[in-house]
Design a binder for these strands. Structure first.
Lengths: 331, 331
DNA sequence: CTGAAAGCGCTTACAG
DNA sequence: CTGAAAGCGCTTACAG
């Protein structure tokens, strides 16, 4: 274990003040070329690495951001996280990631931790920021961006337009004269209440079909094949389903086979996230395609701007989506 | 944006010195009860939260650890990460997570970042620590634990005994008189070179069968169904396969159907990680079962001990595994 | 172009 | 049981 070399050691060895070393490190242009080179050589020879904690205390910037994620094992969020991490690294930030499980108490604890650690900003994914989260970040003036997440307060965010996407998927089935089930986690989640359900209703209206609330199914994020909801879907009058999550969709698909249904012959499915399981399933699952990596990447990019106090012109970004037809739809 | 309240503000309002406030915060027992209560009330009234960056600089402990993960979207590693995060939170640590992509340059950059941020320890997952990683952590005296990862230097680690598990899976097939393929990412990875291949050979030896290197297949982590390796497996003399990754196994399964094979009737598969895709597949995939969450959790627990300079008696831990037979094996 | 000095917000001997 | 003071390793006006 070698002794840590500090800025003082460099200053001594280079015969300059620590201020000058600091200037060199921070690429301050007004350092004489020779001085700079001498310092740089000493930095290299001594293998000096600045202590980011001390930098953080002195500069009040930690180049660390917090990322709150509902579930690291959920492919949807994991893909966003990769986009976040890549861009963060590109801009020289590190991410403190915390798995929230969408648990209010845990989220509150997480936000306290993150603020104590003086993160420069936070990317939030999940259901809804807690009251405490909102007030604490506001009081601290901490920048927050939502990724793959919407809320009722117009917080800067990056998403696809779920309302339009749900409309498109529903319309695809209605055009064929199918009865369409909408499968969501919970109708009270903002993303469902404000986007998916309205998009579904838009399509029904377009096709002059009356809304039947019995065709909205809530899984409560319980993707076990024993969840009775899956059976209920097939026992309903629906002949097709628009599903909010790929894991849910593959369970639904398998449940269909278990119940002796033919897919896509007598039941069709469009899922939402185009994660890898859609390609693993047999038949492969038709899906809305989202630029998952980009959602994370753009969210991080917006956050960097906010942390720099730059103007962010459009803070609620909707990226492009599409629908890819595979084996669970009939064209 | 409210003014930050510091330890000085608390000290003033409570009419004590900041040292006393610090003692109260740190649960130092030798503070008079009344003083303590007065300070506690002020802390609460002022909504004081200590600045962890300043604490980190003064105490030389950041209560932050680094986690290097090859791929956040890989269910195997994501499950370990959840175990790590949970135990970290329990012990009041936060994790800086960095996606390495198993890229040497990126890992080097990551380790520099983590050390600059003065992390108290690091959990490494992946192929192999880089030279730079090893020397930098050694020079810094930073504790390192491997999770789901082995190396040649006896670094503290948590795993299952892959050699024994591979032996068991291979033996299961040999007992039936099958020819067994071993499907791995790359035979030079330590986990394959030191565990899986020897375990496979152990089983062959046990059954008096000569090793045939043509039955070792390397996917190079390329899990696209167009990877020619998958087809080669079915064109070989193998009638069964022990596969290192669940994603690989499901692709192999699907490739089998594409090639007109019946599984498990004329080809059998055992995979390694029992992640959720094994249950999504049809037929469901037989698997070695690993306590993924626990691997991460125990690794984090060991790291906390090392960071506290406690004795760690057994620093290369092997947790229990089992084999669960599902639809891709015949019993 | 460079240095001396204050300050970031804490912890931790040391002294009493 | 409590306080004064030094120190953690930097950044950043300020002065020259």
């Amino acid at each position: 274990m070698q002794p840590k070399v500090t800025i003082y050691d460099v200053a001594n060895a280079a015969n300059v003040s620590m201020a000058t070393v600091s200037r060199v490190m921070n690429r301050n242009p007004k350092v004489k070329k020779e001085t700079k080179e001498r310092v740089l050589k000493v930095i290299h020879d001594l293998n000096y690495h600045p202590n980011a904690v001390a930098q953080g205390l002195a500069s009040k910037k930690t180049t660390t951001i917090g990322v709150i994620i509902p579930d690291l094992t959920n492919a949807y969020f994991a893909n966003l996280a990769i986009g976040i991490d890549d861009i963060a690294m590109m801009y020289n930030y590190n991410i403190i990631i915390a798995n929230s499980n969408e648990d209010t108490e845990k989220e509150n604890q997480i936000i306290d931790n993150l603020l104590a650690k003086q993160v420069d900003g936070i990317i939030y994914m999940g259901r809804n920021q807690t009251e405490h989260f909102r007030s604490a970040t506001r009081d601290n003036g901490t920048a927050v961006v939502l990724a793959g997440t919407v809320d009722e307060w117009n917080t800067p965010s990056v998403n696809i337009n779920y309302r339009q996407a749900t409309y498109d998927a529903t319309s695809f089935f209605l055009k064929q004269g199918q009865k369409v089930a909408l499968v969501i986690s919970d109708k009270n989640y903002p993303i469902n209440a404000k986007y998916r359900i309205p998009g579904y209703k838009d399509a029904l209206k377009e096709y002059g079909i009356e809304f039947n609330k019995k065709l909205i199914f809530e899984t409560q994020d319980n993707n076990s094949i024993s969840n009775p909801t899956f059976q209920e879907i097939y026992e309903s009058e629906a002949s097709s389903a628009v599903v909010y999550s790929d894991d849910t969709a593959i369970i639904l698909l398998n449940k269909g086979f278990e119940m002796g249904r033919s897919i896509p012959e007598d039941f069709q499915i469009i899922t939402s996230n185009n994660t890898v399981v859609t390609k693993y399933a047999r038949p492969t699952i038709s899906s809305i395609t989202q630029p998952l990596y980009d959602i994370g990447a753009v969210a991080m990019r917006i956050l960097t701007k906010m942390m720099n106090k730059e103007k962010v012109q459009d803070s609620n970004v909707y990226l492009d989506y599409d629908i890819i037809h595979r084996g669970t739809t009939r064209i």
